[in-house]
Amino acid sequence: MVTVDPGSGAAVQRRRTWVLGGVLLVASATAMLAAQGRLFVLSSLIDPLFALGALVLAVGIGRAGSVTARRPLGTGAVIGLVVVMMSQSFVYSVLAPPPQREMPLRNSPSPLELVFPVTQSVMLLLAITAVVQIGRIGVVPRPWNWAPLWALAAVALARALPIAPFWSPLLASGENVVPLFQVFDVLSLLNPLAVAFLGIVAIVLGSRTEPGPVPVYPSAAQ
Results as ranks from 00 to 15, higher is better:
M1N: 10
V2C: 07
G7M: 10
Q13M: 09
L24Y: 08
S28M: 04
Q36A: 11
Q36H: 12
F40H: 14
L42Y: 04
A51I: 06
A54E: 04
L55Q: 05
G60E: 01
S66L: 06
V67C: 02
V67A: 05
T68S: 04
R70H: 02
P72L: 09
P72W: 09
P72R: 11
G76V: 06
A77Q: 00
G80T: 07
L81F: 13
V82M: 01
V84D: 00
M85W: 08
S89Q: 12
F90S: 12
S93K: 10
V94R: 07
V94E: 07
P98W: 10
Q100N: 05
R101H: 11
E102Q: 13
P109S: 08
L114W: 13
V115C: 07
P117W: 09
V118D: 09
Q120C: 06
Q120H: 09
S121Y: 09
L124T: 10
L125N: 01
I128C: 12
V132R: 10
Q133M: 08
Q133R: 08
I137C: 01
V139N: 04
R142M: 13
P143K: 10
N145V: 10
N145I: 13
A147K: 01
A147R: 04
P148I: 09
A154H: 00
A156W: 04
A156T: 13
A158T: 05
P162N: 03
I163R: 11
A164M: 09
S168H: 07
L171G: 02
G174C: 08
E175G: 01
N176C: 01
V177D: 10
V178S: 10
V178A: 14
P179Q: 06
P179Y: 06
L180P: 04
F184N: 00
V186S: 01
L198Q: 12
L198F: 04
L198R: 08
I203S: 02
L205T: 04
G206K: 00
S207H: 03
S207Y: 01
R208A: 07
E210A: 15
P211M: 14
G212V: 14
P213L: 13
V214T: 15
S219A: 15
A221I: 08
